[in-house]
Amino acid sequence: MTTESSCKAPSYNITCRMSHEAAALERLCQVVRVRGFRIAKMAVDSADGALNIALTIQGTRPVAMLQSQLEKLHTVAEVKLAAPVVAAASRIA
């Protein structure tokens, strides 16, 4: 699986709520990577047995496909996709 070079690929902001189990974050990150995206930024917060994760990811594949794969994870309660972020590089170009 290849991830596209970061400056050309569109960026997306995703937030995800999942239960705080062993390997929860690894599971999430692995799905992001295998489905063709690269993590550019990640913030994690835990409360009441849940993890709230904010991700900025980059990739050229349809992001809805990633969203449906993340939603399929048993411990993921919710995945929200914010409006696409316009990459700084492409704005200048």
Partner: peptide, 16 residues
């Protein structure tokens, strides 16, 4: 085992 099999299971648990 948990880490090494993440990509080939529907779900997995390490019991605490």
């Amino acid at each position: 085992v948990l880490g090494m099999t993440l990509g080939i299971v529907k779900h997995s648990y390490l019991i605490e």
